[in-house]
């Protein structure tokens, strides 16, 4: 199948049509693209099916997208947002006790 091209933090990332962003990153040997807010620990795919929100990244400028669910598209830009103020601000809030 012909490859398509994405960019990850400005670097080229090849992908196969029909893949998810998470799969394309995994195929490229990348297992982490986010760091945690408190301890700065690396995170990537964990649940792989949209449950855990560990694999968040910025897709075409939209923050907090799940890599495991997002289909690749030619020319898509991905940003890890590892810099302070990156994708770690939930809008669904906390206290649902």
């Amino acid at each position: 199948m012909p490859e398509i091209q994405l960019s990850l933090d400005g670097m080229p990332l090849p992908a196969r049509p029909g893949q998810t962003v998470g799969a394309a990153l995994t195929d490229a040997g990348i297992s982490a693209w986010r760091t945690t807010r408190n301890e700065g620990r690396p995170r990537g795919l964990f649940c792989g099916i949209g449950i855990c929100f560990d694999c968040l990244l910025v897709v075409d400028g939209v923050p907090n997208q799940r890599a495991c669910l997002t289909p690749v598209r030619d020319g898509m830009t991905l940003d890890t947002g590892c810099a302070p103020g990156g994708p770690e601000t939930p809008t669904q809030g906390g206290g649902a006790a």
């Binding site: 995994t26 690396p42 792989g48 099916i49 449950i51 495991c68």
Partner: peptide, 23 residues
């Protein structure tokens, strides 16, 4: 278990079945 490379079994399966990707 929070290290990259640790995944839910179903997530590993989803990569295989949906993407033909081995994690």
């Amino acid at each position: 278990w929070d290290l990259p490379g640790v995944m839910a079994a179903g997530g590993v399966q989803a990569l295989l079945k949906g993407n033909r990707t081995a994690a």
